[in-house]
Amino acid sequence: MSFPNAAKRLMTGAGAVTAAVVALALPASAHVTINPNTAEPGGYGAFNVRVPNEETDADTTKVQLYLPTDHPIASVSVQPVPGWTAEVTKSRLPKPIKVEGGELTDAVTAVTWSGGSIRPGQFQQFWISLGPLPNDTPKLYFKALQTYTDHSGKTSVVRWIDLPDGGAEPEHPAPSLTLAKAAAPQAKPIVKKTEDGTGTALGAAGLVAGLLALGVAIVALRRTGRSTGA
Results as ranks from 00 to 15, higher is better:
217 A>V: 11
68 P>D: 06
212 L>Y: 09
19 A>E: 06
147 T>Q: 15
201 A>W: 03
180 A>N: 04
181 K>E: 08
189 P>C: 05
180 A>R: 06
128 I>V: 14
20 A>N: 07
229 G>K: 13
29 S>R: 12
39 A>Q: 00
125 Q>Y: 00
184 A>K: 14
150 D>V: 04
77 S>P: 04
75 S>V: 09
168 A>V: 08
136 D>L: 12
46 A>N: 10
174 A>R: 09
20 A>S: 09
36 P>I: 10
36 P>G: 09
164 P>R: 01
226 R>K: 15
93 L>R: 03
229 G>E: 10
116 G>P: 09
10 L>E: 00
80 P>E: 08
199 G>H: 10
50 R>V: 09
6 A>K: 06
213 A>E: 07
200 T>W: 12
88 V>Q: 13
190 I>S: 08
144 A>T: 15
211 L>A: 15
9 R>W: 02
100 E>M: 14
5 N>I: 05
39 A>N: 04
68 P>V: 05
25 A>R: 14
117 S>N: 04
32 V>H: 07
14 A>S: 09
126 F>N: 02
166 G>T: 08
27 P>C: 06
190 I>A: 14
29 S>F: 07
163 L>A: 02
213 A>N: 07
126 F>S: 00
151 H>Q: 15
31 H>N: 13
8 K>Y: 06
225 G>K: 13
65 L>V: 13
214 L>P: 00
103 E>A: 02
226 R>E: 14
58 A>L: 01
35 N>F: 12
223 R>P: 04
219 V>N: 13
100 E>G: 13
73 I>V: 08
77 S>K: 10
48 N>C: 08
186 Q>S: 12
127 W>C: 00
142 F>M: 11
146 Q>R: 13
120 P>C: 04
2 S>P: 13
57 D>R: 12
37 N>F: 03
211 L>K: 12
225 G>T: 11
128 I>T: 12
127 W>R: 07
230 A>C: 02
